[in-house]
Structures are given as C-alpha cells and as structure tokens.
C-alpha cells in the first residue's frame, strides 16, 4: 500500500463520519422537540430527569444555537468517538457497539472464508473448461444466486435445514453451530459473484499472450498455471472483494435481523425502529468504518499479490 491509497482511505473514513454525522444531525433537528428530554432520560433514567437536566442536554447538543456551529461540535464528538448514551437502554453507545461488533465480525469473517472456499475454486474449474457442463452449471447458479436477495436465501435455508431436518439451530446465538446458517446465507451470495469473477479471469488469463508464451517457453500446464495463472487470476478476485464488502455489510444488517444474531446490524435496525439516534449514529458510523477498513485490507492484499503500482 502506498501513501496515496492510505491517504485515500483516511479521507474516506472522514467522509463516513461526515455522512453519518450529517444524517443523524438532521434527524435531531427535524424530530419533535422533546429529544433533549429523551436523551436526558436515556442517560439518567426517567425518574431522575427534570427540566434542568433536559436543558443541560439541550445546551450540550447545541439545539438552540447556530446550526453550523452545532454541526461542527456534533462532528467533533463523532470523530473523537464520543458517541453518547443510548436513548433506550441508557448504556454507553461505545460499549454496546464494542460488544456487538465482535459478533458481527465473527459472522462476516465466517461468511467470507466460507465463500472463498466455494466461489473461486468453482470459478477456476469452470474457467478451465469454458462451455462445458460444469461451466454452464456454475454460470447458471451464479446468476440465480445473485438474483435471490440474502434474506430470501436465508428464508429458504431456514425452511430447508431447521424444520425439515432439524439439523441446525435457526436463530439466536449461543450454540457454536448457530453461526452456520447466517454465515452460509451470506456466503452463497458472495460466492455467486466471486465464482463468476474467477471464471472470467481464468478464461482471460488462459487466452492471454503471456500464458501462451509461458507454454511455448516449455513450461508444463501446471507450471504455467502456478507461475503465470494463479497470481494474475487472484488480482481481479481480490479487487472485487472490495465491491463484495458492500454486499457483506448490507447483508449483515438484514441477515442479523432475520436470524436474531446479536450484532451491530441487528442493533442498527432496532435503533432505527426505536428512533434511538445516538445508537443509529454509532452503529452506522462503525459499520461505515468497518467498510473502509476492509477496503484498506483489500488494498494491502492487492499490493501483496500484484507488484504493479496502482492509483486509486
């Protein structure tokens, strides 16, 4: 990773803070006026709230000052990670998110690893024999799985596994196997894309002049593949991981809700329903940062695999 890419990712993190800050700030401004009271209640408990405490909160949020100054101080709190207290539980948002983030990362990482074991190998297999039955099957299932949204994959999986066979836990979190279904739900969607990328990349590489030159130099088919194929095929697969993280993060929101998985996406949806603004802000912010971090990780992996300089 060079300085330009790191710089861009840092810039992107600021954009995330800006967008999330702006969104939640507008929310505060357009919502009915008892917000300060509710925040104070969330913080001190309903019994202890009086108009003085509410007034203090009002001042703290800058609800009566100039909107621009108020937004700047809002933004400043955000980038210092001062996320406030949940309106619903009164818990520090930072602590709640820290706890939930662990679960989400657990789910997302399992899904990603699972998808990498399904997608690219199938894609390479298809790419080696374009037009064959395997290729057609992989192509068709890729289109089908890309067309079923994650939650629908989840619903169908629930139907098949838990009820018919009673094999796997349907929802919740506790059993070590309870992560299998939500992870598989996400992994199938991810693999649908990565298999296609791997297939197209493999075909392109095998048709390339350098692949042919490798052969005519006298390398055997497996030598050519390992020396000139694998790395060149990995480059687009890794680059595409960046795009797939969009799917992964969106998937986390919906799939966690479906499977009642106590992660950050689940919590975001709850917060939106309950209009728990500090919680919305915190979860959206952290998910945005996770997205930026994952993209930076892709930059790093790319750098590792592909020695060419690249500009974002």
């Amino acid at each position: 990773m060079n300085q330009a890419t790191i710089g861009y990712r840092v810039f992107q993190a600021f954009l995330v803070a800006f967008l999330v800050g702006l969104g939640t700030f507008i929310m505060v401004r357009v919502l009915p006026g008892d917000l300060a009271y509710r925040i104070a209640a969330g913080r001190y408990g309903y019994d202890l709230v009086d108009s003085v405490a509410a007034e203090a909160v009002r001042l703290e949020l800058g609800l009566d000052g100039s909107p621009i100054l108020a937004f700047l101080s809002w933004f400043w709190d955000l980038i210092r990670f001062d996320l406030g207290y949940s309106l619903v539980t009164g818990e520090l948002v930072r602590d709640a998110i820290f706890h939930e983030l662990g679960h989400s990362v657990d789910l997302a990482a399992t899904a990603l690893i699972l998808s990498l074991f399904i997608g690219p190998p199938l894609g390479l297999l298809a790419g080696f024999r374009p037009g064959s039955i395997i290729d057609r099957l992989v192509l068709a299932s890729s289109v089908v799985f890309r067309s079923i949204p994650h939650f629908a994959i989840g619903l169908v999986l629930i139907m098949i596994f838990s009820i018919q066979a009673g094999l796997l836990p349907v929802a919740g979190h506790g059993h070590p196997l309870s992560r299998v279904l939500p992870a598989l739900t996400l992994a199938l969607g991810l693999a649908a894309v990565s298999s296609r990328i791997a297939r197209d990349a493999m075909i392109k590489v095998r048709e390339s002049d350098y692949y042919l030159f490798g052969r005519t130099k006298g390398l055997s088919e497996s030598q050519v593949f390992f020396r000139h194929g694998l790395r060149n095929v990995s480059v687009p697969i890794i680059t595409y991981l960046g795009m797939q993280f969009v799917y992964l993060i969106e998937g986390v929101v919906v799939v966690e809700t479906l499977f009642a998985w106590p992660g950050i996406g689940h919590s975001l949806v709850h917060a939106i329903v309950a209009r728990d603004i500090p919680m919305i802000q915190g979860t959206a912010f952290v998910m945005g940062l996770m997205f930026v971090f994952l993209n930076a990780l892709v930059d790093f992996l790319n750098r590792l695999v592909d020695p060419r300089e690249r500009v974002v």
Binding site: S208, D209, Y210, L212, F213, G214, D306, P307, R308
Partner: peptide
C-alpha cells in the same frame, strides 16, 4: 512472440 509487452507476465518481475 509478436507483442513482447503482452507476452511477458505483467505481475512477474
């Protein structure tokens, strides 16, 4: 090969 640039593996030194 006719196109040396294309015939060399772009990701290998």
């Amino acid at each position: 090969p006719q196109e040396p640039w294309l015939a060399l593996d772009p990701t290998m030194r």
